[in-house]
Design a protein around this nucleic acid. Structure first.
Length: 152
DNA sequence: GCCAACGTTGGC
DNA sequence: GCCAACGTTGGC
């Protein structure tokens, strides 16, 4: 049974349009243990809400899917790299990433404001815990967001 | 650009 | 193992 997730990206760093252009991408740079642990639970085919954070407005811009299960985030080993972390090594990787592939751009962008006021999304993590960059989403919540976005 | 929320680090 | 200091996220 595929699960659903929400993953945040700052659109001026990497947007849904970038993902559409690339087809798929590795989700490097997650440096939060809870988010990392969630990525390690992901399976190929899991559904992803692609969320634009630090945007005006913030919200869900599109749909993606997990294309590869978690593997070590090798950027953590590149000294001088933005995501370098001396505590991670090939022998004992601390940080992991998944690959996600483009599925769809929602015809209607679903803003955080709309998520917060939509019936059925009262318990959705993104409306309660703003800082977690990878979040689990219930199937019912996912369906509501996709419908609000003009799909499904 | 501000700052609240909150995760991490490190001294003790 | 507590908690103050610090750094980051992300909405506003």
């Amino acid at each position: 049974m595929a699960r659903c997730w929400l993953m945040k990206s700052e659109p001026y760093v990497y947007s849904i349009d970038d993902l559409k252009r690339d087809g798929s991408t590795c989700w490097e740079g997650v440096r939060n243990y809870q988010a990392r642990n969630l990525m390690r639970e992901m399976e190929v085919g899991d559904a992803v809400l692609f969320y634009h954070s630090n945007a005006k407005p913030p919200g869900v811009a599109g749909l993606a899917r997990v294309a590869r299960t978690a593997y070590p985030d090798h950027f953590a080993w590149e000294e001088g790299h933005k995501y370098f972390d001396a505590k991670s090594s090939p022998e004992d990787p601390r940080w992991w990433m998944v690959d996600v592939e483009y599925v769809d751009t929602l015809p209607e962008f679903v803003s955080l404001d709309e998520l917060k006021s939509a019936p059925g999304l009262e318990e959705m993590v993104v409306t309660k815990r703003s800082r977690l960059s990878v979040q689990p989403v219930r199937q019912a919540e996912y369906d509501i967001v996709v419908r609000m976005g003009g799909r499904g």
